[in-house]
Simulated scan of single mutants.
Amino acid sequence: MRIRFHIEKRLHSQSNNFALNCSLETEDDSLVLFGPSGSGKTLTLTALAGLMRPDTGYIEINGRVLFDSNKGIDVPTRHRGLGYVFQDYALFPHLSIRDNIGFALARPFRGLTSQDANRVDDLMNLFGLSELAQRSPRVISGGQKQRVAVARALASQPSALLLDEPFSALDQPLRQKMRTELAKAARLFDIPIIMVTHDLVDVEALGKSVAVYRHGRIVRHGSVGDVAGEDWSGLFGATAHSERAENERPHNLSLTTKSHSEMHRAAV
């Protein structure tokens, strides 16, 4: 995977301001965006997916320009060919597990082709979900929800998989198991991943290169071996006020993003 981006985005409120200004270029097939909550990691990920439009900059993945403010290019989310796994998984509660996975493949009013139906079946078998096919997301475990979200993101055969804090909702023993499963899936599908996390264990388990965020900027970019061996405790202590945030959006700042339905579509 070759990824290049320069993203600038300013967010404002009456009491606070936040500026995202980050640039990166890498050819590694596993990139981790690492840093404390509120530092701009998820804003970057949503910009890559097309869920948030930068004020200025460019985004290029595998030679394809997805956004360029100077040239007026802004490829819609659904045409970027990227799979997205949300932190809360964003599963459709009114659809079965099988229908969630097949959502991106279903044709309006006509359902799945036989080929697509077979792909959904293969993904359910791979992720151990076949026995849950007709169940609702409301009645399955956190680990099972994550498997459904990853399977759904892979169903449309994306060129890269974007993951926002994929293990944060899981307890510690389950996190290690799901890290192993995700790494296995990435190898099996030969798909690059871009993952947001504030956990160094995630970095070491799944990353090849790491971009370290602080206050809306990338302050370090290097290999996992180089970055994971450094002491980043000061990075998190310096932004303790942001760690209370439930997501990457800086506190009390308004952000114009795509509609909620568009965000659901990005996951597939």
Rank of each mutant, 00 (worst) to 15 (best):
R80F: 03
N118L: 15
I59E: 03
F103G: 05
L112V: 12
Y84D: 00
L105I: 10
L66I: 08
A47C: 15
S37W: 03
S69T: 06
D88F: 04
G63I: 07
D74K: 00
H94L: 07
L112D: 12
R110E: 13
V85T: 00
R107C: 02
V32F: 01
C22N: 14
H94T: 13
F34S: 04
S13M: 04
L45Q: 02
T44N: 09
S15I: 11
S69Q: 00
L82P: 04
T46G: 01
L105V: 10
I59V: 11
D99M: 01
Y84L: 14
Y84N: 06
L66C: 07
S114Q: 15
D29E: 15
R80D: 10
H12K: 10
D122S: 15
G38T: 11
C22I: 13
P108G: 02
G81H: 03
D121Y: 10
E27F: 06
H79Q: 14
G38D: 12
G72N: 04
R80G: 05
R119A: 11
G81F: 01
Y58F: 15
V75M: 10
L45V: 04
S114F: 09
N70K: 14
L82N: 02
D99C: 01
S15M: 09
L11D: 04
Q14H: 12
L43I: 12
S96Q: 08
F109D: 11
H94A: 07
I73P: 05
L66N: 09
T26K: 01
E60H: 04
S96L: 11
N17M: 09
L31I: 09
I59P: 00
H79W: 06
T113K: 03
G111L: 07
A104R: 02
P54Q: 09
Y89H: 03
A90D: 07
D121Q: 12
S23R: 11
R53P: 01
T44A: 10
F18G: 07
A117R: 12
A90S: 05
L112Y: 06
L45H: 06
C22D: 12
V65S: 12
S15T: 15
S13E: 08
Q115Y: 07
N118G: 13
A19K: 10
T46I: 09
G83L: 01
G57A: 08
S15H: 13
T26R: 06
L11T: 06
